[in-house]
Nucleic acid binder design. Structure first.
Lengths: 301, 301
DNA sequence: CAAAATACGTAACATATGATACAGCGTCCC
DNA sequence: GGGACGCTGTATCATATGTTACGTATTTTG
């Protein structure tokens, strides 16, 4: 009776990561980091391979060399040179390493939740941390109800929607306008000279909504504009920072986002996220009509 | 754009699970369930294979038939009969299916976390969760070093900086341009008609940097532009999504942000945050000169 | 208990897959 | 502007890998 080992294969003395021998260097604990570390020293083709792998990490690396090379748009040998440069003896060894890493990840979902404790030198991590905190804080003070109200106001299509922003926040207004305009008519982004938008005031009335982005340092021109719009009965939705732009006084809805980050600039990321959610909420509510509209629009392109 | 399922992975028409043809039967959505369903009807050897796979699911299934058979203590043909009984045509097909399953899991970490749907049928929270996850994921694959490299490239002021974006991402380009233009000269945002920017190509050369934002659906016009710029030796920095815009091919640096959220739209929030960090990094490096410049600018206002 | 059917492993086979040699091309440097 | 170097793709090669055929062992059934 064959009590021996079956297809006994040479029992892979599975190596972990390739030798990062020297002391004093930074700790490399995953292939992704290894790549990030060396991507700077790679030639163009291999860098494409690296980027492709990182983009859908690590799945591509588990497929065959041929598939990998195809998605990366390079030849097979380039892929092999790439893994060789990472320090692996051959492709299967590289794949094994990826699998081990995956296995470890799957077993401890905890490690997925947050980044490695962020080494001291990291100039990025503190900023990322701050940004994430900002978002949590922003949403702690922002209920679903409020967002739903605003979304409802934007959906209620008896009037028009105008959007405008300040020096650095105008792109947010544009971003929101670009999306809203797809799902509903009468969405206008106010750009250009102050005199330009002031003239649009004449088109605005009670049933219209004006979305304003204004963070420090608040711009007088925006405040003036907001006041006039308010006088005409326009409903104002204000995106501002935690210190509240003076426009808050005229606004029907105020969204106060946290903006503090360890940088010379304030961060608009939290406001950006709120804007995206509003876009999402509006789109969802318009699903029925919106779908038709979107199809029409597609056929026009 | 709109109306696609949000975590929909482009490629892989790859057969999902084997034919669970009949209606009325219980839904099988993973290979693990499929096995649990059929393990009762399997002969001894295949059952050992099944148990082995379940025990360290799904890693063993990604290895070779030989390794699988060895760990299960059966012969290779038994493994093959096992996967055949599950309904797969051959072993590679079985592996692909496992990989797809894994990829789906990895891409929506939110679902792993098993968060209670949050009070009030909140439409907001899942989106916030997804957004935060996107950021964590994005930065997991993005090292300080890479950002520093790109920042250095932007700081190295022997050339000009051009920024451009797609239909919905152009505001990001604007946002970044607005900030960079404050701390350094020769920053240009390319807007308007395609013909407008194409004419600017003539000003671009080896020492210049072109920052492009391009996410699904990728715009041909941007790709054409990128290619021409690349031919002129312009250094391209690409902000894209995890599926990589075709422009990645020409890019010197690629930043792949996660964009999947439970909404009809893709989210650019992660890219926005990266952009802010880049702005911060550049500003920091230019501190000395920058401070002077900013003071000058202040006095001009 | 005998005979048939099923299950399983051994060994040979075909091929998909990774590895290598080499030549063309672009780039950098002198 | 010319020569050397390095990078990349094509074509070829070796082999690891999945697959199949077949004979033996085991279980099932009348």
């Amino acid at each position: 009776m064959a009590s021996e080992k079956w297809d006994q294969d040479k029992q892979t003395e599975r190596n972990g990561l390739p030798s990062r021998s020297k002391g004093g260097e930074k700790m490399i604990s995953s292939i992704a980091e290894l790549i990030a570390d060396r991507i700077g020293t790679m030639p163009a083709g291999e860098r494409r391979a690296a980027q492709t792998l990182i983009a859908s990490y690590p799945m591509i690396g588990l497929k065959t060399v041929a598939e990998f090379s195809a998605t990366a748009g390079v030849s097979s040998p380039t892929i092999l040179r790439f893994v060789a440069r990472l320090g692996f003896q051959n492709y299967p060894e590289f794949q094994s390493s990826l699998q081990d890493e995956l296995a470890a990840q799957l077993q401890s979902p905890a490690t997925r939740t947050l980044n490695p404790p962020s080494p001291g030198g990291g100039t990025v991590s503190p900023m990322l941390e701050a940004t994430l905190d900002n978002m949590r804080e922003t949403f702690r003070h922002l209920s679903d109800g409020q967002l739903a109200d605003i979304a409802a106001r934007l959906v209620d299509r008896r009037g028009k929607t105008f959007l405008i922003g300040g020096r650095f926040t105008d792109p947010l207004a544009r971003y929101m306008a670009a999306h809203l305009a797809v799902v509903q008519p009468d969405v206008f982004h106010l750009a250009g000279q102050e005199s330009m938008w002031r003239d649009r005031l004449i088109d605005m009335g009670k049933r219209d909504v004006l979305v304003i982005f204004d963070i420090r340092r608040y711009q007088d021109s925006l405040a003036r504009f907001a006041e006039k719009a308010h006088q005409r009965g326009v409903q104002i939705v204000l995106f501002t920072d935690q210190w509240l732009s003076p426009i808050a006084r005229f606004a029907r809805h105020v969204i106060a986002g946290r903006t503090a980050v360890p940088s010379a600039w304030d961060s608009s990321a939290a406001l950006f996220v709120v804007a995206e959610m509003l876009i999402g909420a509006v789109t969802r509510q318009l699903e029925a009509e919106g779908a038709k509209r979107i199809r029409e629009m597609e056929s026009l392109r």
